[in-house]
Design a protein around this nucleic acid. Sequence first.
DNA 1: TCGCCAAATCAATATCCATTGATTCAATGG
DNA 2: CCATTGAATCAATGGATATTGATTTGGCGA
Lengths: 111, 111
Amino acid sequence: MDIDLASRLGALADPVRLAIVGLLAGGERCVCDLQERVAVAPNLLSYHLRVLREGGLVRSARRGRWVDYRLDGDGFSSLWAALFAAGVPLAGQAVPAGRARPACEDPSGDA
Amino acid sequence: MDIDLASRLGALADPVRLAIVGLLAGGERCVCDLQERVAVAPNLLSYHLRVLREGGLVRSARRGRWVDYRLDGDGFSSLWAALFAAGVPLAGQAVPAGRARPACEDPSGDA
DNA sequence: TCGCCAAATCAATATCCATTGATTCAATGG
DNA sequence: CCATTGAATCAATGGATATTGATTTGGCGA
């Protein structure tokens, strides 16, 4: 992957950007369409779209005067894969029950 | 849920906290144990643990002089559920192929 | 070519968040 | 009690990030 896992997660960790992703979850939309639905200034919307783009979560394509955005399926897949590799319990994954190691000050073993 | 989705995601969007979660993925550990493995100052570790706690991702329990931390399975479950509800494509979910609506300026229909 | 429109970029500010150092709290043992 | 140890909190700083306003770029049509 190109950029840091924490940054890619951070790209998603914002209310405006979550709203954008939610809209794009319905399919491709042009910026002007998003603009009507996400109450932020046009340049700010552009900024958030750039963060999502640099996080590898969306892709853009110019269409005449307009620019269309859509979710990047590969970007999301690789994000979840990286989280899984980092040990983060994803949907449906159980969390381990016991200790990772004997308790500190436990005479039965430490390190 | 108690706190905002973006904040809960943000709780995970930090290299130190991802490292902590990765360690706790192996099972419960006391702070002193984490301390030996996550090169940050003790008070800073405490801070990051608090962010994770407030994000509902970990739980803590005092054991004598020590405090044990473990992942909160319900917290993670509800996080993924909230992301799913927001439309975010989770692992294994495909992103839609077409447009969410007819292209702007497309004579075949707009809104 | 001029003007317009959609979108992006730039520069500046404000706000938030990670980091630091010092202090406080809780539990234990002398 | 008092000293010690593990952990959390507090106050202050620095750096990053969101937001704003002004400017710029790309594409289209009169």
